[in-house]
């Protein structure tokens, strides 16, 4: 009888509002869950394996898979597979690259353009970053930085379009030049390396600015004051202190801008012209035409990936060594 009583009491308790178990408590008390939790996390090692499983799978399949597959396709003579045809291995796709100026010229143009754009971006954004980090009062820095950030949230296409309006024959620049009486006929900025450069720098400047800013912001003001105390002039202070200490920011900013600017496709199509074709357009061409061009596109993409990664690798290595020399 007592048993029955306690049963009803329990029931009353469970159904009373607010008398229920917390969700997580119920989960932890659940027998099935306990067994699961016990088997999955029995040892530290097993727990680590559980934690590592998805990220490692993701890295292998999503990050490495596409690249490995791309290299592999580059060695096939035909892809996507056709019915009744067994693709054969070949080096022809790789060799083709070296045999035709139509491929080599855009390739080196891309690398050269990216290099030039990177340097120009560095030169433009360094003073901006320096001004932000050293001359703007700390409590205003966020506001000043935000002002620069807003345009960068807008997408690639919209911003490219904005540059088209700016530089067009009836664009703002030509309008201003004309009204100043400097020109009679509009200057054809568009569809040249110049318009492409303006566009790419417009798109990538942030990737330079942010690393520079965070590197410069970390340099304590008293380093510069101490150097000034020791009689170092403005130029010496810059060359001997600011520059070496912002080296890391320069390295990562340049790497990012270089890698990103080699990868643009829409911007060169919209802003560039026949004399400024970049390798991205060459590669894309293989995937537009229906048919058997994928292997060549894959091989070319692989060549470009190797080239850009090698270039940044060499650059970072040089920066590492040069930087150490500079500090000494």
């Amino acid at each position: 009888m007592a048993h029955a009583e306690s049963d009803t009491a329990d029931l009353g308790k469970a159904s009373a509002p607010g008398g229920r178990m917390n969700f997580w408590g119920a989960l932890l008390q659940n027998g099935a869950y306990q067994t699961l939790s016990n088997t999955l996390f029995k040892t530290q090692r097993r727990q680590f394996v559980m934690l590592a499983s998805l990220p490692l799978l993701w890295i292998v399949f999503a990050n490495l898979g596409p690249i490995v597959e791309m290299f592999w396709i580059g060695f096939l003579d035909s892809y996507p597979p056709k019915v009744g045809y067994e693709p054969k291995l070949t080096f022809a796709n790789w060799a083709a690259f070296f045999q035709d100026r139509v491929f080599i010229v855009p390739f080196f143009r891309t690398l050269a353009f990216s290099l030039i754009f990177t340097v120009i971006t560095l030169l433009i954004t360094y003073p901006v970053a320096y001004f932000l980090a050293k001359h703007v009062k700390r409590k205003n820095q966020l506001l000043f930085l935000l002002l620069l950030l807003i345009p960068f949230w807008v997408g690639e296409i919209v911003r490219t379009y904005a540059i088209m309006i700016l530089l067009g024959n009836n664009g703002a620049v030509n309008l201003v030049l004309k009204s100043l009486g400097l020109i009679d006929r509009p200057i054809p900025f568009m569809y040249t390396g110049f318009s492409l450069g303006v566009g790419i720098i417009y798109l990538t400047a942030l990737y330079m600015l942010l690393p520079l800013y965070s590197a410069l912001e970390k340099i304590p003001d008293n380093y510069l004051e101490a150097a000034a105390d020791l009689g170092a002039g403005a130029w010496t202070r810059f060359r001997r202190i600011t520059l070496p200490l912002s080296k890391e920011g320069i390295a990562s900013g340049c790497t990012l801008v270089f890698l990103i600017s080699t990868g643009y496709y829409a911007t060169p199509v919209l802003l560039g012209g026949p004399r400024s074709t970049v390798f991205a357009e060459t590669i894309a061409g293989f995937f537009h035409v229906a048919g058997d061009q994928w292997p060549m596109g894959a091989a070319f993409s692989s060549i470009m990936l190797i080239a850009t990664l090698a270039a940044t690798g060499i650059f970072l290595k040089l920066m590492g060594r040069g930087g150490k020399g500079m500090i000494r």
Binding site: A62, N63, L64, G65, P66, I67, E69, M70, I73, T255, L256, L259, I260, T262, G263, Y264, Y265, A280, I283, A284, F287, W294, G297, A298, S301, M304, L305, T308
Partner: peptide, 17 residues
């Protein structure tokens, strides 16, 4: 890696994948 690979290459590789 995917964050630093040039966009066009990333796109092509993913298309093939």
């Amino acid at each position: 890696l995917p964050a630093v690979i040039p966009g066009i290459i990333s796109a092509i590789a993913l298309r093939i994948f």
